[in-house]
Amino acid sequence: MLPAAHRMRAAADFRAASRHGLRAANRYFVIHVVEGEPGAGLLVGFTVSKKVGNAVVRNQVRRRLRHIMRDYLEIPASKVVIRARPGSATASSQELREALHTELTRLGMVHA
């Protein structure tokens, strides 16, 4: 589980990351990243629309992404929004983990 201190809750933070940050996408999700204030730490938000599935499926996708993101808490001060796409509902956790690592590497957030 992702610690509460790292969860994004404010709508303004979601908007800032989605509109002004770097963007990377694949068939499972779109990642938006904007650098935060130094010393602020990592904030991660998740958006899972009804296009992904019913409430059970959406919550399952959100939980799996939260679980995967806890391995990346060492990322420097950033605001990250992960917007799930319908393909994420049928993807395995391993596929999501590999795709997330690939996109974070592409954005320069982690090293290969």
Rank of each mutant, 00 (worst) to 15 (best):
L107F: 04
P76G: 06
V57E: 02
L96K: 02
L65R: 09
V81R: 00
E95C: 08
R70F: 02
V61M: 02
R64Y: 14
A5C: 05
H101T: 08
S78C: 14
G108D: 10
A24S: 14
V44R: 00
R62I: 07
R83Q: 15
A112E: 13
T105I: 03
A10Q: 13
V33K: 01
G21N: 05
I31T: 13
G21Q: 00
H32R: 02
M69H: 12
F29L: 09
R62L: 04
H111D: 11
V56N: 07
L100K: 01
R23V: 15
F29E: 11
H111A: 13
L73F: 04
L42H: 04
F29I: 05
M109W: 02
M69G: 09
G87K: 13
T105F: 11
R23W: 11
S88I: 11
L107H: 03
T102W: 10
N59M: 04
L104P: 06
G108L: 12
V61N: 05
R7P: 11
R58G: 07
P76A: 13
A5S: 14
I82L: 12
P76Q: 09
H6I: 04
N26P: 02
G41S: 08
R64I: 10
G21W: 07
E98W: 00
A5E: 15
R106E: 03
G87E: 09
R106M: 05
A5H: 11
G21F: 08
I75D: 11
V33D: 13
N59R: 14
E98M: 08
P86R: 02
L22T: 04
A11S: 14
A91P: 02
E95T: 12
Y28K: 05
S49G: 10
M109Q: 06
A112W: 12
L43E: 12
H20M: 09
R62H: 06
M109T: 00
R63P: 08
